[in-house]
Amino acid sequence: MDLRQLEHFVAAADEQHFTRAARKVNIVQSGLSASIRALEQEMGAPLFVRTTRKVELTVAGRVLYEKAQEIIAGIKEARRAVAAINGLERGTLSVGTCGSLHAFFDLPQLLGEFHAQHPSVEIKLCHGTATKLMESVKDGSVDIGFFPLYEKSREIVTIPIASDHLVVVHPMGHPIAGRENVPLESLAEETFVDFQPDKGTRKIVDRAFASTNVSRRSVLEVGDIQVLLDLVAYGFGIALVPKTFACARIAAAKSPKLGVVTLKKPHIAWDLVAACSGRAGAAQTRNPAVAAFTKLVEKIRSDAIAA
């Protein structure tokens, strides 16, 4: 049994005439008759009483007619629902982000533009660490995530949002003040204020030290960039942070102040990305809202580069 057979059957029942029913569904009468005969064979019962003037439903035909109408109506509703999703007349978009990314891009503005274009799509926003967001993007529980890329993975596809490098921030009066191009190895004896282990920046820093076989001592681990910078300024230790964060803090001219020195090249890269699942049938192809949002992300990024 297929949908066309049911449509042919319902048309014949409604018209009570095979010729008129065939015209209604736009096939030849012989084709409609053959379709209904095949349906009768599959159902194992005659569905019509045929006369020269008209056809009428049998008892079995009346039972099937009610069910067929329900099936056809359900399929039409399913088609409308899918069309609505594809046309972004409905649907959901789940977005994940790390904290303190406003220094690099305006996520509320981005979400606002998407909502203005597609007001019927429900937006779900969550916050998490880079580690958690990476896993959520991979398993599909988050459609698109914004976080520092601490490792490459075939399970995700990324759109570059911003590129930065890490610098050393230190309290005023620290012996390192005024130096330039400081080797990472020379920081082995320093005391560090660090991000928590599941933060993307922390993973980038850990990997950089591991690559040089240098260990360091962390006295405090925090989850917020402003708290980290305050602790450094109050003399708890030094830290490695993206240059943009350090410059923004200095420009704010808030007390207590801190200093910044650069690391010896090659710099430790810090890249902010928008990430989607890279698996077959991934979110950006399964969910049209993700594809639309991704295009908006790419457009805003292109506009920012052009400016």
Rank of each mutant, 00 (worst) to 15 (best):
L296Q: 11
R179F: 12
G145H: 04
R37T: 14
T158S: 10
H102Q: 14
A306F: 04
F147E: 01
A253N: 15
Q226P: 03
P160S: 07
H127G: 11
F114D: 05
S163A: 14
E89D: 12
I75D: 10
A248H: 14
D224W: 08
A269K: 01
F114L: 08
F105K: 00
T191I: 13
L228N: 05
A162N: 04
Q29D: 13
V182Y: 08
V10F: 03
S277M: 00
H102M: 11
R154D: 15
A251W: 09
L263S: 02
A233V: 07
G237R: 02
R23P: 00
V241R: 05
T294P: 01
H102C: 09
D164N: 00
E155M: 11
A78M: 12
V82K: 13
G112N: 07
P256G: 02
I225N: 14
K257E: 13
A304H: 05
H127T: 10
S94E: 10
E7P: 02
V214A: 07
S35F: 05
F245P: 00
Q29F: 09
L110S: 03
F48W: 06
I36N: 04
A291P: 03
A73E: 10
R216M: 09
A291M: 10
A177N: 12
P160E: 04
A81C: 08
K295R: 15
T129L: 09
Y234N: 15
E40T: 05
A60S: 12
A68I: 02
L228H: 05
F114K: 00
S35T: 03
F209D: 06
R216Q: 11
D303R: 11
L32C: 07
C276A: 08
G112D: 06
A274G: 07
R216F: 15
T212I: 13
Q16N: 14
V167Q: 00
H8R: 15
A252M: 13
F48H: 04
